[in-house]
Write a protein that binds this DNA or RNA. Sequence first.
DNA 1: CTATTTTTACTAATTGAATTAGTTTTTACA
DNA 2: TGTAAAAACTAATTCAATTAGTAAAAATAG
Lengths: 198, 198
Amino acid sequence: MTRRMKLDLSIILQKATKLVDEKGLDQLSLGSLAEELQIRPPSLYNHINGLNGLKQKLALDGVKKLNEYMLQAAVGRSGDDAIRSVSEAYIQFVRIHPGLYDATTRFPDANDKELQQAQESIVQLVLQVLQAYNLQEEIAIHMVRGLRSILHGFTSIEQMGGFGMPLDINKSFSILINTFIEGIHTVVSNEDEYLQGE
Amino acid sequence: MTRRMKLDLSIILQKATKLVDEKGLDQLSLGSLAEELQIRPPSLYNHINGLNGLKQKLALDGVKKLNEYMLQAAVGRSGDDAIRSVSEAYIQFVRIHPGLYDATTRFPDANDKELQQAQESIVQLVLQVLQAYNLQEEIAIHMVRGLRSILHGFTSIEQMGGFGMPLDINKSFSILINTFIEGIHTVVSNEDEYLQGE
DNA sequence: CTATTTTTACTAATTGAATTAGTTTTTACA
DNA sequence: TGTAAAAACTAATTCAATTAGTAAAAATAG
């Protein structure tokens, strides 16, 4: 006598997130999702625009959640400390939600205004964090791209099991972040050379 | 009277590479590949182990090619110069072979001895490059992971069209690499603190 | 050269998943 | 309580991968 769970988009995304985080994004199918939800696959079309539409909704949801997560990590901190904290949050998020994160990188809908806004929000957050260094506006944006590359690259490789050597992965991460931070400090002192490309 | 092209694995990989680089890895299908090769899809099974086997062969091929590419870029250079050159080669390779590169990160066969060897070869190459800095062995490996994260992260985001702002992407890249290099220089001077995690 | 074996391509059939069409049930609420 | 909208269903379609079994072609042994 299980009462039928009331189905709506948020329930669907919740179950889909669980599935992709546990089995991987490529294992997500309308069949498996429908089974989890105890409905038939076609019923899902009343809520989502097919499998691809679902993945795009996951991508949006993932970016929003990542943004919140990083925001929490940034409050009350500044400078090096803020960079480390935000970076730590990023890697933690990906570890908790590998499949959801994967969706954010593989199925972002370039036309989705809400998604663009969430992405922009992350950029702004990191720009805030970098304010402490008084970088020139343009350099600051390059640095945002740099940090994002580092975070995405490291987490992606970790998720694919790409770090083969028997060496503490967390140490690799903190050294990477610290190396980048030290680099920023140096760049701050020689900004003009870097802008023109020396 | 077109003579039937003699089909073998290398021809198949060649055409498959062309397809994935032009249309994207997810668009690769045995149907489209067979059509290009003017055979029927089942015939492919005489050469490859299904679609997944094909993707794994692409992954192996991609890593080997990337390795060669980086090797070429490294010869005759050392230190900062070598890091820049190898990094430049990496990003160039991904720009030339986006689909093939994608395969190397999404379909590596963890049990393939040949693949492991090719991957190891890249690690060794970068370790060679880092010798110039006289880093402690352990730190050096962390740095290899760091550089790899940077290169994979940056190229992945570029490929997904993730850098939205209207700012020169090549400049972002060179600043990122230079920042990392500056970071290494600083780390060299304070190695012990970094090893223990300060 | 010819016969045999192996390789490679083929057709036909199967499977599995997404999707669409069209219908029925349920729910909301006037 | 009746009606409209929402949401679920069954049935059918499509498309791609794969498998089974057969035929053609090529390599090779005698």
